[in-house]
């Protein structure tokens, strides 16, 4: 049926884009971008995921409600990752004297855990 043909074209064009992105992310991993490597890789992964979601999983012609359901999972994951990293990215090391820290000295008044027990 000719109705299937535009869809076929769309599917394989999407596939081609995905494969290109795969090549880009694999090759890009070898570029010396320092900390940017992670962001580039994740950005490309997000692009691939969006292509799969929008084209293959037909979000492009789904109702707003279905799109909201699809977005909700990712949004909540983002909440979990963001607030957890609020802890991990803001921790300061306060080594104790018996940990063998070479420059161990009492934390300047008011650091977390200040004062001994």
């Amino acid at each position: 049926m000719s109705a299937a043909r535009p869809a076929v074209g769309r599917i394989w064009r999407c596939w081609a884009a995905l494969v290109l992105l795969l090549a880009a992310t694999t090759g890009g991993a070898f570029l010396p971008l320092g900390r940017l490597n992670l962001f580039v890789a994740l950005a490309i992964a997000a692009a691939k995921a969006l292509l799969v979601l929008i084209v293959f999983m037909e979000l492009r012609r789904s109702s707003g409600l279905v799109r909201a359901f699809a977005a909700a999972g990712f949004f909540w994951l983002a909440i979990m990752l963001t607030l957890t990293s609020a802890d991990y990215l803001t921790r300061r090391d306060a080594p104790a004297a018996w940990d063998g820290a070479t420059d161990a000295r009492p934390p300047a008044g008011g650091g977390e855990g200040a004062g001994g027990q």
Binding site: T25, A29, L38, A45, A49, L53, F56, M57
Partner: peptide
């Protein structure tokens, strides 16, 4: 497709770490 999406995110997190020098 969802199983594919999961792998799309696992791939860089597993295989593409620390490849540049």
């Amino acid at each position: 497709h969802f199983v594919d999406v999961v792998w799309i995110f696992l791939f860089p997190l597993i295989y593409l770490v620390g490849r540049s020098g």
